[in-house]
Design a binder for these strands. Structure first.
Ligand code: DTP
Ligand code: MG
Length: 388
DNA sequence: ACGCGCGTGAGAC
DNA sequence: TCATGTCTCACGCGCGT
């Protein structure tokens, strides 16, 4: 019962008519865990859990990712480490490895650099994921796109030793969903005339941007599949999700997405730590200063300065509270970040009186960047990452 | 009406 | 039965212009 699938554009072939793009999405398989296998091949065949230890107790923390052997048993991103330990307690040789983000970042950069050369335009979405616009070099031909995609996949395996999954489609949204449907070690093309069939029977929650909260609301309104969402009255959706998000969801359900593949630049940096014990007051020099230092160094290394400095407090109930302050000038100074963050913490925890805010985790954020040196074509603000 | 600053919430990785 | 860390975007509100 779906209707159309793309939106403007009729033309075929030739240059870059608005929606004859071909977009490739590449996503490395169980990335952090696969990186660990790469430097320690004896791990292969065993369950691997990449852990973010918070330092609260020796085992407290969460799982960053797990390889597919562990995943089959129920270990996945975000669950408590102890829960993963319980799941794997009878598995011989299960490996719990502390996250080594720098190492993964290094491998990622090497691969991303080689990918960038293979695209008309390139967008790195995360440490293990990127979009390549390959419209021109495939001449808008999916046969050519298939050849290019398979070349890339094998090149990464041969040159870098990593398995990845590639999805190809008429836009970022579809290419990403194609990749999601094919992992691990997969390759999938969804052509424009296949988009509707591809999407229609998937649960709405599989749509990028529809998380647990939105899915629940949709389900309560009888919307179970992406196909349901695609034909649900637009005004009702606007009522439920607002006049922008409602229609947006509907367009996404139709596989429509005009958002260009373009380089991204960071807009904020933050650092959050978990306190050894919950606290409503703490030693700024011990807790806040090192955070300010890290952020200052990062700003200086990347050549950004920020006008907005904020703090983040996560309560024992895991609610997030934030306070922020915008300066009339941009800064990267450690002292300044430290001093403003401290002020905001004082304020938030009520220097005197006030109800007592209790923190489980605290953090600092810098945002509102101005570039120190040059600036490249940063552009507009817009709706979601995936649609016009 | 618009842009900005601020706080919150949702989502992705 | 414990719940990381980092980032992006949307929304709603108040405010000044
Ligand atoms: N909730 C999280 N907390 C911390 N780190 C995360 C989280 N989710 C993902 N990551 C990190 C670890 C992942 O290896 C990496 C890439 O994420 P993602 O592509 O979603 O999973 P993955 O690469 O491990 O598995 P796969 O892509 O095969 O499903 O980002
Ligand atoms: Mg991945």
């Amino acid at each position: 019962m779906l209707k159309r699938e793309t939106q403007p554009s009729r033309n075929s072939l030739g240059a870059s008519s608005p929606e004859q793009r071909i977009v490739l999405c590449i996503d490395f398989d169980y990335f952090f865990a696969q990186c660990e296998e790469l430097r320690n091949p004896s791990l292969k065949g065993k369950p691997i859990v990449i852990c973010v230890y918070s330092g609260r107790t020796p085992t407290s923390g969460a799982v960053s990712t797990a390889n597919y052997i562990a995943r089959k048993l129920g270990v996945k991103s975000g669950i408590p480490i102890v829960q993963a330990m319980k799941i794997l307690k009878d598995q011989k040789g299960a490996a719990f490895i502390p996250m080594d983000h720098e190492y993964y970042e290094t491998l990622s950069e090497e691969i991303m650099d080689s990918l960038r050369e293979r695209a008309d335009s390139f967008e790195q979405v995360s440490v293990d994921e990127a979009f390549l616009d390959i419209t021109a070099r495939s001449h808008s031909d999916y046969g050519n796109a298939e050849i290019i995609g398979k070349e890339i996949k094998e090149e990464i395996r041969e040159r870098h030793g990593l398995a990845c999954t590639i999805g190809i489609g008429p836009n970022k949204l579809v290419s990403k969903m194609a990749a999601d449907s094919a992992k691990p070690d997969g390759f999938r093309i969804v052509r424009p005339n296949e988009v509707e069939q591809f999407l229609k029977d998937l649960p709405v929650g599989k749509l990028i941007g529809i998380g647990p909260k939105t899915e629940k609301t949709l389900n309560q309104n009888g919307i179970k599949t992406i196909g349901d969402l695609a034909v649900f009255p637009e005004d009702k959706l606007s009522e439920l999700f607002g006049k922008n998000l409602g229609p947006l969801f509907r367009r996404m359900a139709r596989g429509e997405d005009n958002y260009p593949v373009r380089e991204r630049f960071p807009k904020q940096f933050s650092k959050i730590i978990t306190l050894k014990e919950n606290a409503s007051t703490f030693n700024f020099r011990d807790d806040v200063e090192p955070i300010a230092k890290v952020l200052s160094v990062k700003l200086n290394q990347t050549g950004f300065k920020s006008k907005t400095i904020g703090i983040i407090v996560i309560t024992p109930e895991l609610k997030t509270k934030t306070r922020s302050k915008t300066l009339s000038y941009p800064t990267s100074s450690e002292e300044e970040i430290f001093s403003i963050a401290s002020q905001l913490f004082q304020e938030a925890f009520g220097s005197q009186g006030e109800e007592t805010l209790i923190a489980r985790r605290i953090g600092v954020r810098v945002a509102n960047f101005e570039e120190k040196t040059k600036r490249v074509g940063d552009e507009t603000e817009s709706l979601s990452k995936y649609i016009l």
